[in-house]
Design a protein around this nucleic acid. Structure first.
Lengths: 183, 183
DNA sequence: CCCGAATGAGACACTAACGTCTCATCGTAG
DNA sequence: CTACGATGAGACGTTAGTGTCTCATTCGGG
């Protein structure tokens, strides 16, 4: 009887990731519940998006924790992070594009916390001489988000095999497309 | 008297790039014309988006032509391409995310032509030994689009200086974040 | 200078989606 | 078994945005 709020959020995330303009009715149907019930649990579309935001932040934060970014080399940490974040990639890319709509007014401050962690990771990597210093931590952070979103989309569209997702992202982000000379 | 269709499209692009859900009325106001006039020139929102699509395709194609991808090294070609595409970056990122809404039905075939050109460029770069072969041309193409969109967004949000736009994108795409050993 | 074409402003009907409400049904705890 | 709470289905009014229309105004070419 008690509604599985988590399961509703996950199916909503799966749907909205594919079609961000989906109707409340479609979200309800996708979750296998009635529209009235959906409204009972989430006051409106905004509340639903907020809940998805919280979910995404929790998942990303969990991925950051699981990645243990400080253990071993920065490269290893990054690989663990991308691998850990993969299941939430679609949701995160939805939230990133969704956030652009909020005109700077009130973005969940959770994002700032996450941005700070990721950005600090890149900065530490620079200080330890593992990352280039001519690319700012802020840009590397944004690029990571962008590539995760692009990767999720490319997999969804069938242009990249799902199993290659972490490899493609990490290799491009770390090594770039240029063939290194010593190879 | 005769409406400057091009100018209307450009202001619409500028607005929709920032807020993709803007109203027809807002688009009209942004262009400094009445809503009725906007409707006289673009039958509806769909028609407007199609026109923006055509514009974006034309601009990207022009950038591809201007970049002369085959002259000199692949790296130089890529640098020229990113520099040439910079003014249209916002519009392109809007169109890329907008395209995700069309459920595979009818995407403008112009995109296929452009995708083919970019993808072929990366493939040639691989064949000439300039690009790694473990990253597929399709993924490099998607990553280029993604980084252009991310870059446009980061500049817009003030997280990256506008003048660094081409450098950040090309350097990351080519060289990656890892600090090379010989440096 | 004058006439026609295009524009801007606004009224209008229509639609889609939202949010609320009611009511019958169903599952489950007690 | 019973009663209570949650659910699903659907009706309802409201709102925002759309697309069409009219009409007065204005611009520009002849």
């Amino acid at each position: 009887m008690t509604l599985d709020r988590e399961q509703v959020l996950r199916s909503a995330a799966a749907l909205l990731t594919r079609r961000s303009t989906a109707t409340m009715d479609e979200v309800a149907k996708a979750a296998g519940i009635g529209r009235a019930t959906l409204h009972r649990h989430f006051a409106g579309r905004d509340a639903l998006v907020r809940a998805l935001e919280d979910l995404g932040i929790r998942e990303f934060e969990a991925a950051l924790d699981a990645a243990a970014l400080d253990e071993g080399s920065a490269e290893e940490g990054l690989r663990r992070l991308v691998a850990a974040v993969e299941p939430a990639a679609g949701l995160l890319s939805f939230l990133v594009t969704e956030n652009q709509l909020f005109e700077g007014d009130q973005v969940n401050e959770g994002w700032n916390r996450l941005d700070a962690r990721v950005s600090a990771f890149f900065r530490r990597g620079q200080e330890r001489g593992e990352f280039r210093i001519d690319l700012t931590p802020a840009w590397l952070t944004e690029a990571l988000y962008g590539l995760i979103g692009t990767g999720a989309w490319a997999v969804q569209a069938g242009r990249v095999a799902a199993q290659d997702f972490p490899y493609m992202i990490v290799e491009l982000l770390l090594g770039g497309a240029r063939r290194s000379v010593e190879k």
